[in-house]
Design a protein around this nucleic acid. Sequence first.
DNA 1: GCATGTGAATGGATTCACAGCT
DNA 2: AGCTGTGAATCCATTCACATGC
Lengths: 221, 221
Amino acid sequence: MSQRAPEREAISELTTGRLSVYLRCLTFLESIGQRTVSSHELAERFHLNSAQIRKDLAIFGEFGTRGVGYNVATLREHLIHTLGLDRTRNVIIAGAGNLGMALADYGGFNEGGFHIIALADSDPAKFGKTSRSGIPVVPFASLSTTIRTSSVEIGIIAVPSPAAQHTYDALVDAGICAVLNFAPIQIRLRPGVKLKSVDLRINLESLSFYLKNVEDGTCGF
Amino acid sequence: MSQRAPEREAISELTTGRLSVYLRCLTFLESIGQRTVSSHELAERFHLNSAQIRKDLAIFGEFGTRGVGYNVATLREHLIHTLGLDRTRNVIIAGAGNLGMALADYGGFNEGGFHIIALADSDPAKFGKTSRSGIPVVPFASLSTTIRTSSVEIGIIAVPSPAAQHTYDALVDAGICAVLNFAPIQIRLRPGVKLKSVDLRINLESLSFYLKNVEDGTCGF
DNA sequence: GCATGTGAATGGATTCACAGCT
DNA sequence: AGCTGTGAATCCATTCACATGC
């Protein structure tokens, strides 16, 4: 599809998700002063198979030492680089409702490589206000300007479902090519733009399905 | 592991997730008055393969009519029943911070089979307050009482990571056997309890990885 | 000896392709 | 004809098992 195929195009989302998990673990291990870690030790922590971990870590080069394991600090730096977290990426949140505000103040979204620039909303009553942690609400109409002047690379859709497609298009038109969507609808995609969707309700329904299937009084009690 | 194996134990999360998506689509189709729908039409809406949809829908019985398709209303009722959404399940949220409050007021969590009873928090300053939509904050110490007296079946963990394991154990001890966890840590599981974890940061890191890999100026522009 | 890195084997999920019903 | 339901085939991810190197 694209002409300059970077030799290794095929790293699945499952793999990158695990890399993120390993990274978090390595950060913890480094903080407690551990120098090396083996694939077996990592595997135990996450109920994973050690071969899986070795395969994941070997995709981008050989970073372990046979007979010893992986150097925590080195591997951590390597993963940070691989995931593109070694420089800050600016983020904008579309929708300053409950969810948008919560995400703006969410710890994990404002550290380790990400910086939330602003929330954009179409309700004038919210303009000029800020989230609790001080992230400003700007008019939706100025989305494009904000994105360009602040070099925003990632957009988060936290608007009601009916507004989601429109919001997506506005983000893409402003030059965004990576979008995280919380609206439970199927977005009409545009080429060259990466979309990740998080459907909160599906998780609850999955639990409901589980409960229905133990609905005979068991549940371990 | 369990002695009374309900003949069909093996329905993957991937499948139930799709069933949830189909259900949402059917609700929409019913609202616009469409009577029947084919697997091809559904497939187009979600970029899925029509055989996949037919397989998913055939797991619990034959609900289509050859040559015609599926009856929207019938199939919808059938999915609601299959997912256990035909009766209300009560939910409690542990953690009345930004995320907990946002989830308490999140539309999708308070309709179609779910009812959020309360938020539980250990900060006395929050006791007796409510979320914007009126869901009360109760003391964390009364978690167990609330769960039992209100017949709560699902717990949501929206506390900071260091408190997540403790919160999980408290929920399980109070009789909860389905938990939705938003803390980015590996929970030590207890048997007979279903856990679904949502890691918000991993999604951002996945976008970062994508951006890093187009970092040669492309991105469709 | 011990732990990585990796080809081969396995296991699951998706897709194909067609038989069977309306 | 049109569309479902499903065995067979394919694709992808995980796991096994061992050769390789410290």
